[in-house]
Design a binder for these strands. Sequence first.
DNA 1: CTGTTTTACGTAACCGGTTACGTAAAATGC
DNA 2: GCATTTTACGTAACCGGTTACGTAAAACAG
Lengths: 334, 334
Amino acid sequence: MTYTIKDVAQKANVSTATVSRILNDQGGYSEKTKRKVLNVIQELDYYPSGVARGLTNKRTDTIGVLVPNLTSSLITEFLNGIESVAHKIGSSVIVCHTESHGVKTLKYLQLLHEKRIDGLILASTALKKEYYDYIVKMRVPVVLLSAYSEFPVPYVTADDYEAAYTGTKYLIQKGHKNIGMISGNKEEWIAGNLIPRVEGFKRALSDHNIPFNESYIEYGKFSIDDGVTGLKILLNRVPDLTAIFAENDEIGMGVLSAAYNLGIKVPEKLSVIGMDDISLCKFMSPPLTSVSLSHNEMAEKAANLMFKMINSDTEVNNCILDHQIIERKSVRSQ
Amino acid sequence: MTYTIKDVAQKANVSTATVSRILNDQGGYSEKTKRKVLNVIQELDYYPSGVARGLTNKRTDTIGVLVPNLTSSLITEFLNGIESVAHKIGSSVIVCHTESHGVKTLKYLQLLHEKRIDGLILASTALKKEYYDYIVKMRVPVVLLSAYSEFPVPYVTADDYEAAYTGTKYLIQKGHKNIGMISGNKEEWIAGNLIPRVEGFKRALSDHNIPFNESYIEYGKFSIDDGVTGLKILLNRVPDLTAIFAENDEIGMGVLSAAYNLGIKVPEKLSVIGMDDISLCKFMSPPLTSVSLSHNEMAEKAANLMFKMINSDTEVNNCILDHQIIERKSVRSQ
DNA sequence: CTGTTTTACGTAACCGGTTACGTAAAATGC
DNA sequence: GCATTTTACGTAACCGGTTACGTAAAACAG
């Protein structure tokens, strides 16, 4: 039995309305009663129930974050950024680990709907139609983080196409001609079935007159493991590769790892570049060169956008952030 | 305006009580009305409010998880495990990033209290008295994950002392005599001011008649960065070290990274062993040998324990899990 | 065909807050 | 001094569910 506002009111000889007003700094009470009530609150060690408050206020000060993966550093760095701004604003965040699984995702959306969250962030998640349909039913501000969509949902992301183009071009300018790519899951990108990072890669090659062949790309998922198996398969298929463009840093880390175990020196024998520039990159051996997509900024921006929508109910602009090569030690000139 | 149970009741020509009974499978209604109500529910696309439900049921199906750090892989693996069992049970998890910060932690506890969470897990957090005091006020099941306490709070953890002993002994048996240790934050372990992992390290040395000197230990925090600065400082102080015992894998990764950049070959010139066996270890160059503390099991066990307490209100036993050396490539025989 | 038990509901109070509205007392104007 | 405005509250309805209790109808027993 914790105390309720009634207990406080009774003990202070006032009405619950007055207590409520004092709790919310709404004025309409004298200094004297305020002190009296505050004393009782302290004495009873009373804390108002957020649940009850949520019922009337229609605001739970809670947001949901859908992530495809909790073991990816990129994602947890996103989570970190989101949590940080949420906390500043006084909101809590519920993490939902969807594993990129459709049914699980929908179940989570339903759960969050029932919990009456104030807003929702989808991190690195392709917005399928069924998700979108559900979300409009929820009538809750949503923003996509590191994803974009043709549905009218605001997103903050990098220009994956451009960033991949830049990364590939960097490799080319270093003199590489035989460049393989290890990409994430094909099926993840239903929309338009063009994978931006893959397209950027291809375009950079063709713009520099480097012949391209589908066998230069290996598709896996997004994890480190996919980097290691990816490298093995790729090298098997086309042995004279001098550089690998990894679709993200986790894959890049996997490539580094596989290369080490295969006795292939990086960057002497093989150059590798990743994308995202997660914080682990600089601690790799060798430190992994990467295309930074300013994802720290991204997460905070997405969160701020969402809270802006929650608080003002205004439409909001999409946001595309810059990218930039962070040179470290995993690429050398050919 | 989303629909409420009243809308459903009205449209189906029954009372809200009946709808509620049907929603909760409580019996006391005919098949016919059940179908009728279910139809209306589907038609209106009604979802009951978890907030309202929480108010009467005094159960929010939400738990809180306090983590000191969201960028540590160990912690996110914990989070992963907890989220997984919570989801199975139908609970949501609110992440609270305390940054090991006392005031922030208390603020979070208060927030979780107001949110009326059903249970709480403190991951890798030393249970200070002030936290404990607050927690007893909350009257909510709590379990410590990868931490222990003298206060009567159930914990699930490894035996850090023993594990460190085992890890150090392993190094000794490989012929190392000049072993340095890089440890986490001294101040984190207020309780008894003995750091279990440090004590285990010292004890292993003395049991094997290896002279010990405080200068062999460097204290930092728990991050990769502390591993890199730690190694530099340590090597400066005592240059003839042949092995490093890292208090956790992140520090171990930092050591690997620093060694690489310093041109010190691991394991040829320097052996390093970490602790926790996070999933990144095996992808390092070289793959990092580590003392596994079965932390996957740990997280799930902690979560299960907490839910058991929530559901049955019974006392519950502490749990100390095994450890085991996972040999990889970062240690060689001297 | 009664009398009793069971079934299938409805009514209304309750969970713990917020708030629109009403009013007595205090403050202000003249 | 009285009329008017302002202040400081209290009352009660409401948010959206759950549930104890009551009861008419149905099922069953004999």
